[in-house]
Amino acid sequence: MNELAIKELLYTLADNQLILGHRNSEWTGIGPILEEDIAFSSMAQDKLGHSLAFYTLLHELGESDPDTLAFMRNAAQFHCCHLVELPIGEYDFSLIRHFLYDHAEAIRFEYLAQSSYEPAAKVAAKLRGELKYHLLHANTMVKQLGNATAESISRLQQSLNYAFPYALGMFQPSPYEADLASSNIFPRESNIQAQWLESIQKILAQTQLQQTAVHTISPVLGGRLGQHSEYLQPLLDEMAEVINIDPSTEW
């Protein structure tokens, strides 16, 4: 078992969930309608639960405890992609980000549930059931708003165009990708990206949204290796505000 490769994979999975979870939680209290406020808040809670499950696996491999991993690292130690770091923007951007991210996440969890690394396989087999509801939500809203009014369609289209290079950044390969793939721990990111494109296309085809040609877009990379957007560190500072005031506090 290649422990370094497994740890890097677990950090990437956990950090993406944690950061998107925190971003989703910023809709609590200000969602455009009550159902969406509740939906983004619920998905935030699920994503924090998912990150906790992966941080717990890391802790079992000798890393710090989950709270320390979540709140006491700086941006350069995070492995998340830029897509999840971006501010919530307007509702249309948050919806599109959630749609693009969760389609990829669902594919990841299906592969992970088959992983030869059994602890992660067990966690993924459990979490994929919860993720189905995130996908159901994303697909329902994208189909509704992607066919509704001229304004809703053009807003979603603009957000889709803006988010796409960041979304492609989700598929930055692990430095240990060859090891992970050959030992049947986790497939190559290019496989996941290809399936993801098919998966989002199935939904977009049922809307009036156009997907831009992928080969003309350069992905925004770097997050997996610790190079982040200007938005991550301020978010981490905010998340760690309580623990930084009093590290021994319980909340």
Binding site: E35, A39, S42, D46, L136
Partner: peptide
Amino acid sequence: RTPFGPTLCRAMHYCNNCRQMFEQFKPL
């Protein structure tokens, strides 16, 4: 109406017969 509700395990439905919202413990 929405697969999310007041707690993570609940979905919200609407009954067209008695015309009120109800909650469901959602299948997982």
